[in-house]
């Protein structure tokens, strides 16, 4: 693999611990401690800023609650069953939509990607459908399904499907042609090729696609609740906002942010696992 140019070790190397970590893709492990401390400091500073700015009147207090105000609203929320139902509703729509999109994306991706003809045949259609914003589907989702979970799923699946599909298509095309020929020479059938050649090669790409899709799915789940009114955090936010519960509105935004961070972290860990035992190294940049 001729690989990413950023990971070549300098010539003078074995003794000198490289001083500028700019050359390394990730900071070495022993440095991660101070980074974590710095990051914690940043978060604390953010909380402090949000506490102070409304208090000293830099921002109008009626629209910007303080950290402590948001915190106590959050504490109230956590004590309510309604809140947890909303969280579960959101997560349910997210997980179900993501699962459907993942299965559809992987299956179609492998079907389309493993033959050059189908790849070329579908390319223009994919290129047209992919950039269509999923929120364009909102009106028809409302007309067809109202506030049932199907309308949420429609948006979530449409948005996250493309993320998976595109990555799987990249992945399948990444199969080493020599390995492909070898497999054919040894008479591996189509299914065996998928099982032992295409799937392992594409797996890291699938994981990247899943991570991107998971983030998008959460956005669309909350959006749909907010706009269409499916039960969930988005609807809770709309209700709080129209009822003038400002601190509660902010608290719900914070909760959606925390959910988003969790989703990112979990899927990043899964992706790294998948990448770690895979020989190919690859950037996240769409080629």
């Amino acid at each position: 693999m001729s690989g990413s140019p950023a990971v070549v070790s300098p010539a003078g190397g074995s003794t000198a611990p490289v001083s500028d970590t700019a050359a390394l893709p990730r900071a070495p492990r022993r440095r991660s401690m101070p980074q974590a401390v710095l990051g914690l400091f940043g978060l604390v500073a953010l909380v402090a800023l949000v506490e102070i700015l409304p208090r000293i009147g830099v921002v109008p207090r009626e629209y910007f609650p303080t950290s402590s105000g948001i915190g106590s609203a959050l504490a109230d929320l956590v004590g309510q069953g309604e809140f947890w139902t909303a969280v579960l509703d959101t997560l349910q729509g997210w997980a179900l939509g993501l699962a459907i999109a993942a299965v559809a994306g992987v299956v179609l991706g492998i079907l389309i990607g493993s033959s050059r003809f189908t790849r070329e045949l579908t390319a223009s259609t994919i290129e047209f459908l992919r950039p269509i914003p999923s929120v364009a589907l909102i009106p028809i989702a409302i007309l067809l399904f109202g506030t049932d979970i199907e309308s949420k799923l429609l948006l979530v699946v449409y948005a996250s499907f493309w993320q998976v599909l595109i990555q799987v298509l990249y992945g399948v095309q990444d199969v080493d042609p020599v390995a492909q020929d070898t497999a054919r020479a040894y008479g591996l059938g189509r299914w065996a090729r998928v099982r032992y050649l295409i799937w392992p090669t594409a797996l890291p790409y699938v994981m990247t696609g899943l991570r991107l899709a998971a983030a998008v799915a959460l956005i669309l789940a909350v959006t749909s609740e907010l706009v269409i009114g499916n039960p969930g955090l988005g609807k809770l936010l709309a209700t709080a906002q129209s009822g003038g519960a400002i601190a509660t509105s902010y608290a719900i935004v914070v909760v959606t942010g925390i959910l988003g961070v969790l989703v990112n972290v979990v899927f990043r860990v899964i992706e790294r696992r998948a990448l770690s035992w895979h020989p190919s190294q690859r950037g996240e940049l769409p080629a």
Binding site: P10, A11, G12, G13, S14, T15, A16, S19
Partner: peptide, 17 residues
């Protein structure tokens, strides 16, 4: 020999280090 600090020396001479 490889890894004898040649690159370090060169970086010092060129003012990079």
């Amino acid at each position: 020999p490889s890894g004898c600090g040649k690159t370090t020396l060169l970086k010092i001479m060129s003012g990079l280090l």
